[in-house]
Amino acid sequence: MQHRDESLKTCYIVYALLIVLLVLTVIAARVDFSQHGFDYLNLNIVIALVIAVLKAVLVMLFFMHVRLSSRLTWVFASTAFFFLALLLAFTVADYSARPMDRTIAPPDAPVVANFDHP
């Protein structure tokens, strides 16, 4: 397989995109969207995580040269994320299916007892 290279211009553009995404995520975090979506998976955290995934994809494809790498490298790079996705999906699916009472949950009360879970 011929070894190819990302041009420096591409790398500067990717860096600029990464900084734009960083500024976006910092600004988005200052707006309170927590009324939208589930309480523990509200719009704020969804926006923050989507931007994180975009940044990670940019770093992997361009800075880590995955875009121009062999298919075997693609397999190696995606396998780990595939198994992480399995671990995360099944664990979260299990926990989110459990009944919970979140009516009493004062996080700043000086309590030792388990008050998130009355």
């Binding site: 190696f76 790079a77 198994f83 664990t91 926990y95 919970m100 004062p106």
Partner: peptide, 29 residues
């Protein structure tokens, strides 16, 4: 290096899953 990084993804991934579970349980805290 990618084989090593794959083990690292799951190394940090375990912590992130633990984080996700506790965040789900105690999200206000």
């Amino acid at each position: 290096m990618w084989a090593f990084l794959a083990t690292e993804v799951l190394f940090f991934g375990g912590l992130i899953v633990a984080y996700a579970v506790y965040r789900h349980e105690y999200f206000l805290s």
